[in-house]
Simulated scan of single mutants.
Amino acid sequence: MTIFRARPDGSSPWDGQIDWDGTSKRCALGKAGVIAGADKREGDNRSPTGVWPIRYVLYRPDVYPNGPTTALETKPIAADDGWCDAPGDPAYNRPVKLPYPASAERLWRDDPVYDLVVVLGHNDDPPVSGLGSAIFLHLARDGYPGTEGCVALAREDVEALLAAAKPGDAVEIAAD
């Protein structure tokens, strides 16, 4: 099993590094830094520490017509796909179809951030209301600004990570 280890680098709350197989790449973490996984709360802009299994990969089929190169399970994103982030909703921290009656994040975006989305097993077995939703590994914005709690890497680094990943692998978000 490979653990892809993301950690702050100390230059800001969100600047970080992710390491695997002797490789170290830049990443962005939560705008407010990292927090113990058990203390994560919806909307706190923190990345939860812990080891989070990789569940599957979502991808934009217009960007990756044949899907990404990976041994992981992949699923294409449709224009009406969303992810529920409403703590009181029964579909909290689950994929939904849009429009959805409760708050839900759109997965088919105008920017490239969700062209590749690695769904992590944070607060999903089962989801607990308010303990954080939509903790993904995805593409970083230009300049690597902080995320709302996800881990974000350059496109080529996400592609390299996916090429190396196998079923049963996990992403660790560490405090150091």
Rank of each mutant, 00 (worst) to 15 (best):
V117E: 05
Y144G: 01
L161P: 03
D142A: 10
S133D: 10
L139V: 06
D157W: 12
H122Y: 10
V117F: 08
N123Y: 11
R141Q: 13
H138Q: 00
D142W: 04
D142F: 07
V128N: 14
R155G: 00
D124Q: 11
V128I: 14
A152K: 07
L137A: 08
L139E: 05
P127W: 12
L131S: 15
L120A: 03
C150W: 06
F136A: 02
A134C: 13
S129D: 15
V151Y: 05
L139Y: 02
E159R: 07
P127A: 14
L131C: 15
V158G: 01
A152H: 07
S133E: 13
G146N: 01
G146S: 03
G130Y: 14
P127E: 12
A140S: 14
V158S: 02
G143V: 04
N123E: 14
E156N: 14
L153Q: 00
H138R: 03
L161T: 03
V128M: 14
L120G: 00
H122R: 09
A134F: 15
A152R: 07
C150Y: 09
A160C: 11
F136P: 01
V118H: 00
F136M: 01
I135V: 12
A140W: 02
V128P: 10
A140H: 02
G146F: 00
P145H: 07
V151K: 05
F136N: 05
D157M: 09
V119G: 04
L120Q: 10
G132I: 08
G143A: 03
V119E: 03
L161C: 01
L137N: 07
G146T: 00
V158A: 02
G121S: 10
D124H: 13
A152S: 09
R155K: 11
N123F: 11
A152T: 03
P145S: 06
V158N: 05
S133W: 10
G143Y: 04
L137K: 06
G146Q: 02
G143E: 04
T147E: 04
Y144F: 15
D142H: 05
A152I: 08
F136W: 09
A134G: 02
G149E: 06
E159P: 02
D157I: 03
G130P: 13
N123D: 12
I135P: 05
L161H: 03
G132N: 11
D125Y: 11
H122C: 07
R155H: 07
A140E: 01
V128Y: 13
A160E: 15
G143L: 01
L161N: 05
H122P: 02
V158R: 01
V128E: 15
V119S: 08
G130S: 13
V117A: 05
D142Q: 07
N123W: 13
S133K: 12
A140Q: 02
V151C: 06
C150A: 10
D125N: 15
R155L: 08
G132K: 09
P126S: 06
A140D: 03
V117Y: 08
R155V: 02
E148H: 15
D124M: 14
V118D: 03
C150F: 06
L120D: 05
V119R: 06
R155T: 10
L161G: 04
L139P: 00
V119N: 01
H138D: 00
P145L: 09
C150Q: 06
R141Y: 11
N123H: 12
A134K: 13
L120H: 03
F136G: 04
V119Q: 06
L131V: 13
R155D: 08
D124R: 14
G121V: 04
